[in-house]
Design a protein around this nucleic acid. Structure first.
Length: 500
RNA sequence: GGCCCGUUCGUUUAUCGGUUAGGACGCCAGGUUUUCAUCCUGGUAGGAGGGGUUCGACUCCCCUACGGGCUACCA
């Protein structure tokens, strides 16, 4: 059996978005499952839409997720180049072959002319019917064609779709799919600038790179008919096709798009980007506090299921159990709550030191210059109560600085000014004690004086952190330190007393 | 408009003709906890509609409705 070779083929027209990541993931999983090859191919045939930096962004994103290609630009391989813009001559050869065999023809219509046709007739299609009255090498006399060719303007090569045929193929996910050739348009395969369109480049490359399985988004389903036709014209065996269901907006109205991040308030891109244009600025999953393994786990289950109830998977586990026939047929809405839940699970099970390194930059940005060991301890105490890593910092500021404000409501309700002297004594004892004595100091004091622990702990908590929420109080105080804890209590009690 | 694909709890999915239609997220309730969270227990809620086929249909077929995709010298 031929070894499995799959490709992820994004176009560098902008940052890779989450749907693309899922496509990459499924390709990766499929390749690894069969010990095959995962290839990255950059589909940059549209010079006008090329965005500098997009390719680097794509690679950086894949790297963050750990979905490294076995072959691709910057990764090497025997089937390069892996950027389509560097394969221009190859496509021309194959275009010429199609032309020579009568399976393609030159079309000289200008974009403006076609535009007008479409405006006057909404249903206009460049197909086996309309090509008979349009400006192309099929209708024009040979001399005229020769003249236009020499002139070299507005020359496009179009695929000549045969009439009255049923074009069908098997999709691994959807089964048998068929199209009537009369419904298909004569797609441009080589553009005026000499570049191929996706359709030609894609099948030539898939063939030359010996791709065995094409796993891509559902938006390609309609044009697959054109692709299988080209495979036939070239006499090649088509690869297996799998068209993935789309990831939909949370509302279900349409596929998730790049703009939806800002619209719904969650990331749709892996990595953040700063741009001069405000609308191109966005926060990625990474900076928003997501762990790559969590996003991958979430994405894996968005359109695929193992067939049982297991939900938590490591990447190697996914590689093992993944299969195309378990991919869902219908589109799945992006559910940020589920994504956060996965992230929370991964955070909880993460090693403290590892978490510390992922939030270190954030801590430094906020001006919290603490040791990585201290940060790791903070992570250990905070990780059970956050959904995203950035909340370890934003929800645990009292580990780095005294609280700026206190929960006055609760103080008014539960603080008893007559206990003020007790708090001060506790503070003194803590200040003079060792860190592992804190628990004994508080509980011992309360007990010896016949007081209620419930009247002290909540108040101490607010004194230390400002609010009623947070990790175990004793543990927190031990981390913050005896001296600092003592000072915070003394200061806070003075403030509390003034509220009465 | 045309073509293609799809349709199980609010969301994501299991079910590959016979099940009290299962899980997870969310939500609600209870327990644990000095708080929050974690964790545990329980609850909530579903086969779009109509025809067939069949002893029997969520499952197979058809129609309708709805949703999505495509319909560029973009990918």
């Amino acid at each position: 059996m031929k070894s499995v070779r799959v490709r992820f083929a994004p176009s560098p027209t902008g940052p890779l978005h989450i749907g693309g990541v899922r496509t990459a993931l499924y390709n990766y999983l499929f390749a690894k499952k069969f010990k095959g090859t995962f290839i990255l191919r950059i589909e940059d045939t549209d010079q006008n839409r090329y965005v500098p930096g997009a390719e680097a962004y794509i690679i950086d994103s894949l790297r963050w997720f750990g979905l490294l290609p076995d072959e691709g630009p910057e990764f090497g391989g025997e089937y390069g180049p892996y950027r389509q813009s560097e394969r221009k001559e190859i496509y021309k050869q194959y275009g010429d072959k199609l032309l020579a065999d009568g399976n393609a023809y030159y079309a000289f219509d200008t974009p403006e002319e076609l535009e007008m046709m479409r405006e006057s007739d909404q249903t206009f299609k460049y197909d086996s019917k309309s090509r008979k009255v349009l400006k192309n090498s099929l209708t024009l006399p040979p001399e005229k064609v020769k003249e236009l060719l020499e002139k070299g303007e507005n020359i496009a090569v179009r695929l000549k779709i045969p009439e009255n045929e049923i074009i069908s193929f098997n999709d691994e996910i959807r089964g048998h799919v068929s199209f009537e050739s009369n419904e298909l348009d004569d797609k441009v395969i080589l553009k005026g600038d000499g570049m191929p369109t996706y359709h030609l480049a894609n099948i030539v490359d898939d063939h030359l790179m010996e791709i065995t399985h094409v796993i891509r988004g559902e938006e390609w389903l309609p044009s697959t008919a054109h692709h299988v036709l080209m495979y036939r014209f070239f006499g090649w065996t088509p690869p297996s096709f799998s068209h993935l269901p789309l990831i939909l907006k949370p509302t279900g109205q349409g596929k998730l798009s790049k703009r939806d991040g800002a619209k719904f308030g969650f990331p749709v891109f892996p990595l953040s980007r700063d741009s001069d244009h405000e609308e191109d600025n966005f926060t990625g999953f990474k900076d928003d506090g997501f762990l790559p393994e969590a996003v991958l786990n979430f994405l894996a289950l968005l359109g695929w299921s193992p067939g049982n109830d297991q939900e938590m998977f490591t990447l190697p586990e996914l590689c093992e159990v993944f299969s195309l026939d378990k991919i869902t047929k219908s589109g799945a809405r992006f559910d940020i709550d589920k994504a956060k839940w996965f992230n929370q699970q991964y955070i909880i099970h993460s090693d403290n030191l590892k978490l510390a390194y992922t939030v270190q930059d954030k801590a430094i940005d906020e001006g919290y210059n603490v040791s990585i060991e201290y940060l790791a301890d903070v992570c250990g105490l905070m990780k059970e109560r956050v959904h995203k890593t950035d909340e370890i910092i934003s929800g645990g500021r009292f580990f780095f600085e005294p609280p700026h404000a206190f929960d006055d409501e609760t103080i008014k309700k539960r603080y008893k000014p007559e206990n003020s002297k007790h708090f001060l004594k506790i503070a003194d004892q803590i200040g003079a004690g060792e860190k592992n004595e804190i628990e004994q100091i508080i509980k011992g004091y309360v007990q010896e004086n016949g007081l209620k622990l419930g009247e002290f702990m909540p108040i101490l908590r607010i004194a230390l952190s400002g609010s009623m929420q947070g990790p175990d109080l004793i543990q927190s105080m031990m981390l913050i330190g005896n001296k600092e804890s003592s000072e915070r209590i003394t200061l806070a009690v003075a403030y509390f007393d003034k509220l009465f």
